[in-house]
Amino acid sequence: MISVLFAVLTALSNGTASVLQRRAALDVPHSAAMRLSLIGHLLRQKVWLAGIGLVIVAAVCQAVALATGPIAVVQPIFVIELPAALVVAGFVMRVGVTRQVWYGVAAVTAGLALGMAAAAPVGGSEDVEGTAWIPALVATGAFEAALIAAALGTRGNARAALLGLAAACGYALTAALMKDAMSRLDADGVVGLMTAWQLYATAAAGVGALFLLQNALQAGSLVAVQPMLTLGDALISVTYGVTLFGEELRTGWWLLPQLIGVALVTVGCVVLARTPLATAQPAPSRVR
């Protein structure tokens, strides 16, 4: 299935990008938090630019995945981005992959498989009726504003978690807008895509989500950010898939294994984010 393949490639690219961006964020002074100067600091770091390059690769793969499959199938697959990145990093850097990592990988993989099998997303349209976007955008804006306001009232890992969830919401919105934009390409060709407001809204939402993620990574540890980012993106994307695209999930007693799957993914993400590969605080990079 093409959509699954490209979703996996997206997860791998995004997971590696998160690690590179976290490394770069460690060099940014705390005084730059929630300021545009944060991006200025990051732009001078090659490791951050490499991360952005992988984000672009991920965006292309994600567009292909969303154009060929339901959003409720594609987005949840992204929960594998953290385990994939840690395993690859362990082999590339020749650092032993501990049992803790493998336990986390097993929990995330089993949780994803169980949740997807129980939910069995099907159906749905390729595009969204124009007026349906209005309540969705209003609700998303209100949710984002509440999360950011709460984050500004705290600090440390609490702020990181709230901003991580805000970034997740932004990335989920980006995926929904991207899928709707890609449907214009299928229906009306390149001209239809280039004249669709969803294309430009995708770019705006993506930049906003990236800004929130950089602040989340700068505010606290990966263990606070990654579970909120990973699970938030998956669950909010499923919500968009059901409400905007009319995709259907199994309900009734099937909700129980779905919740168990979510719990396994949550535990796996926390375990992985606490491993040395994820929590290591490298010395400030001198590569600029």
Rank of each mutant, 00 (worst) to 15 (best):
I2C: 06
L5E: 05
L5P: 09
F6E: 06
S13R: 10
G15R: 07
A17V: 04
R22C: 00
R22L: 02
A24N: 01
V28H: 08
S31E: 11
A32R: 13
L38H: 15
I39G: 00
G40L: 08
H41R: 06
L43R: 14
L43C: 01
K46F: 03
V47R: 10
G51M: 03
I52S: 03
L54H: 00
L54I: 01
V57F: 08
V60N: 10
A65Q: 02
L66T: 02
V73I: 05
Q75R: 12
Q75D: 02
I77D: 05
V79E: 02
A84F: 03
V88W: 02
R94F: 00
V95M: 00
Y103C: 09
V108C: 05
A110N: 10
G115Q: 11
M116P: 00
A118P: 02
A118W: 04
P121N: 05
E126T: 06
V128D: 03
T131R: 15
P135A: 04
A139T: 15
T140R: 00
G141E: 03
A146K: 06
A149M: 13
A151H: 07
R155N: 12
R159N: 08
G164A: 10
A166N: 06
Y171K: 08
Y171W: 14
A172F: 01
A175E: 01
A175P: 01
A176P: 08
M178G: 11
D188V: 09
G189E: 05
V191E: 12
V191F: 13
G192M: 10
A196G: 10
Y200G: 08
A201R: 13
A204V: 08
A205H: 10
G206N: 02
V207W: 04
A209L: 03
L210V: 09
L210A: 13
L222S: 12
L229I: 00
L229K: 13
T230R: 12
D233F: 14
I236T: 13
T243Q: 10
E248I: 14
R250Y: 12
G252F: 02
L259E: 01
L259V: 07
V262M: 10
A263V: 12
V267P: 07
C269G: 08
C269V: 14
A273K: 02
R274T: 05
T275C: 01
P276S: 02
A280F: 08
P284W: 06
